[in-house]
Design a protein around this nucleic acid. Structure first.
Lengths: 358, 358
DNA sequence: CTGTTAGCGCGTTCAT
DNA sequence: ATGAACGCGCTAACAG
């Protein structure tokens, strides 16, 4: 297997600039201009506390005058770091992952790190490939977030090997016997509470709208749903509705199909907010009113929920906390410390019109 | 002004790994194992046609066995390229920019390029700072997309200087006398057609919901709106509604305020889809029906539009075309060719429930 | 507090 | 078709 990482497409033109930018100032130029050695310039950038204020000022002036910017390649080569972290997400078509990327970026930027972005588009083989090529792409660490199942042997192997190459933290799920740090929501409890809420407002029976086969999140949320139903002596399998995809269209199609078959529940717990909105629209198209006929609760508490009609209830969880924890684990690993193995972020239900007492 | 790009926060732990990964194989190891010189290994990676098939195979086998991955830092240092492009967007809170990022990533990945992501969050000073630090962050080129005004002297200067440091393409707007290549939508025509459509369905008067002061896009779309109104002898200023922000909440608040003041139009052209949805909800909260009382058209044709109630009409424009053109310009510049100065992508209206003949 | 110096891993001549 | 050797710009020892 060839290990070429670069420009596989012969059509792709390659950058001509063999040496960086012709007129660009380098550290030697700055040192010269400031009348100091390159080491001092380097210190001003990396360990300013070791340089006298007067010297530091001279150097900084020289840097400004020459429009100097450190060369990341040289810096990374010598120092072994890049001040760059990779984020790998399941799919940017899902708003929650976008929220996560935003939160992570803020956190990373705050610490002076740049962000490399990868989008798997729910393709597992793409995960393995991405992990493989991430090896030396120039990022110091990787934050992976996906709700898709990660526990098949090939993926676990890829993840384990990746872990030996760079700090890796997985946001969103926990794999048995996994060796990497994990941050995730308490999805099971969140789903149980949401289901209990639906039962409380009399929205029976409650259907669970979410695919399970290849979704870790779906399975986890279904487990919480099942907890609530079993406590009431109901069969959780009876109103388990399969879903083909995780977007608006999938939610719409699934509900459309069930309702057309005259299967009409009192409430729907959707695996995410997009599916919930799709479901809501499908119900509307069948003259079913939300929440009077059918209540709906989604997952994620995405920003559009208050503005759709009816506004959608959803299970909230702080994405900032996830981001902070994930970055915290990364900083720990950078520092050679052992990160906390698992961090669980609590969820809570946000009630809106779609699940009011009807 | 100090030019430090790295870890400003003293609290941030720094990566310990002085040399990359301890056990990582490098090009020397591969050469040794394959019984060739490092030059040959390099050729296998970069100019495989110059290596005999037999040798190539031996080298590739060695690379696989050693789990070798080229070191981007060293490669970039020597070769002056990174196979990385930076994307800078106005705000990831707006779905259109997310769509753009997705499309760009696909295009870049297809050509073997990684993606660095920056989010300005509509902060102009942040743009200047970002551009500044992008200088040598390790990306070969920059694609900037924002609808915020770029034509103040400081920004233009920052952009012009950036352009001397790396290939830069601006997606979304054109600045007079600008020296950088631009790809953008034909927003003015799109807005005119949307307004004409609203007039056709009898949704008069038509209000324009969009801030102009700091938004290039707002101004452009207003111009198209004004074109249509002026052709009918209407005053475009009369129903120009200011907007504080560009999200759901801003659209909601603006319409809420106008309606509370008993200013009720027959139609609303919103500067984007989020604003349109916020507006739609505000109308609903005032017992105004869409489209029977008020029609709405947005901009962007975001994916949730068909699933809200009523579904929202919107001005569509191919984000893939924008992405392709932007990348095309980047490849041109990489190859030393002059890119096309301006590329305009056509728009067209997608009619949905919110602007049906009422 | 500051200067000197040795590589980091790779791509590229220029040899052969 | 292949190899030897140089140096890209920077950081981190170490020396002073």
């Amino acid at each position: 297997m060839p290990k070429r990482d670069l420009g596989k497409d012969p059509e792709t033109p390659r950058s001509k600039s063999t040496s960086p930018r012709p007129g660009a100032a380098n550290i030697v130029d700055v040192a010269h201009r400031a009348g100091v050695s390159v080491a001092t310039v380097s210190r001003v950038m990396n360990r300013p506390e070791l340089v006298s204020p007067a010297t530091r000022e001279r150097v900084e002036k020289a840097m400004a005058e020459l429009d100097y910017h450190v060369n990341r390649a040289a810096s990374g080569l010598r120092g072994g770091y890049f001040r760059t972290v990779s984020i790998v997400v399941a799919s940017l078509s899902q708003p929650w992952y976008v929220m996560l990327v935003r939160a992570l970026r803020v956190e990373l930027e705050r610490h002076g790190y740049a962000t490399l972005l990868y989008d798997l588009d729910h393709d597992t083989s793409s995960l393995v490939r991405t992990l493989e090529s991430l090896a030396r792409q120039g990022s110091e660490g990787v934050i992976l977030s996906t709700g898709d199942r990660l526990d098949d042997p090939v993926t676990v192997d890829a993840l384990s090997r990746a872990r030996t190459r760079f700090p890796l933290v997985v946001a969103g799920q926990r794999v048995e016997n996994a060796t990497w740090p994990t941050v995730q929501y308490d999805d099971r409890t969140g789903a149980r509470e949401a289901t209990e809420h639906l039962l409380e407002v009399g929205a029976e029976p409650v259907a669970f709208l979410g695919g399970l086969s290849c979704s870790y999140l779906g399975a986890e949320r279904f487990a919480g749903y099942a907890d609530a139903l079993l406590a009431k002596g109901r069969d959780p399998q009876e109103w388990l509705w399969p879903l083909d995809g995780l977007g608006f269209a999938a939610g719409y199609a699934a509900v459309q199909e069930q309702v057309a078959a005259a299967r009409i529940p009192g409430g729907i717990l959707a695996v995410n907010d997009e599916v919930a909105l799709g479901a809501s629209r499908a119900l509307a198209d069948h003259e079913l009113r939300v929440p009077d006929d059918v209540s709906i609760v989604g997952f994620g508490d995405t920003d559009f929920l208050p503005y759709v009609s009816p506004s959608l209830s959803s299970v909230h969880g702080s994405v900032e906390r996830i981001a902070e924890s994930a970055c915290g684990a990364i900083w720990d690993m950078f520092a050679g410390r052992e990160p906390a193995e698992i961090e669980i972020v609590r969820r809570h239900l946000v009630r809106r019109e779609s699940s009011r007492k009807g």
